[in-house]
Simulated assay, not measured.
Amino acid sequence: MRKTILILAVASLSGCASTAPTKIGANTYYASKTNTAGIFGDVSAVAGSLMGEGNQFCESQGLEFELVTQQTTQNIPGVRLGGASITFKCIAHAQSPIMRPDNGVSTVN
């Protein structure tokens, strides 16, 4: 019985993967991480963790983090572990991807 539990534990941990920021273009990077908490984990937290790591990566180069894409995959018990992936840029001055062109200011005549 102990041997079976040990084998299952090792097998579940071997499916956990993480990629360091990988350059995929001009100042553009890709990173992904599998949710190691299985069905109890929050893939949004995994995405947040990736963004934090991306921010540190860019800061180490004296640049700012700018999120380009974010994708999360939910866990399906017995089929796959969930996870997240992001694409980001390290640039001199990041633009807010959510701010409207008018910086959120509108006027009513």
Rank of each mutant, 00 (worst) to 15 (best):
M1L: 06
T4I: 03
T4R: 13
I7W: 00
A9G: 08
S12W: 15
S14A: 11
G15S: 04
G15A: 13
A17M: 05
A17F: 08
S18C: 14
S18Q: 15
S18D: 03
T19H: 03
T19C: 07
T22P: 10
I24R: 08
I24D: 00
G25T: 04
G25I: 05
T28M: 09
Y29F: 09
Y30Q: 00
Y30E: 02
S32R: 07
S32D: 13
T34C: 09
T34D: 06
N35V: 00
N35E: 14
T36Y: 02
T36H: 01
A37P: 01
A37W: 07
I39H: 15
F40R: 02
D42F: 10
D42A: 11
V43I: 08
V43M: 09
V43G: 00
S44R: 13
S44C: 12
S44G: 07
A45C: 09
V46H: 01
A47Y: 03
G48C: 07
L50S: 07
M51E: 15
E53Q: 15
E53T: 00
G54I: 05
G54E: 01
C58E: 02
E59K: 13
Q61L: 13
Q61V: 10
G62Q: 11
L63E: 13
E64Q: 07
E64K: 05
E64A: 08
E66D: 03
L67E: 00
L67C: 10
V68F: 00
V68L: 12
T69Q: 14
Q70A: 10
Q70D: 14
P77H: 00
G78F: 07
V79R: 12
L81A: 06
L81H: 06
L81M: 12
G82C: 14
G83I: 02
G83N: 14
S85M: 12
I86F: 08
T87W: 06
F88Q: 02
H93A: 12
A94G: 06
Q95K: 11
S96T: 15
S96K: 09
S96H: 13
S96L: 12
P97I: 07
P97A: 03
I98K: 02
P101D: 08
D102P: 10
D102K: 01
D102H: 13
N103H: 13
V105G: 01
S106D: 11
S106T: 10
V108E: 14
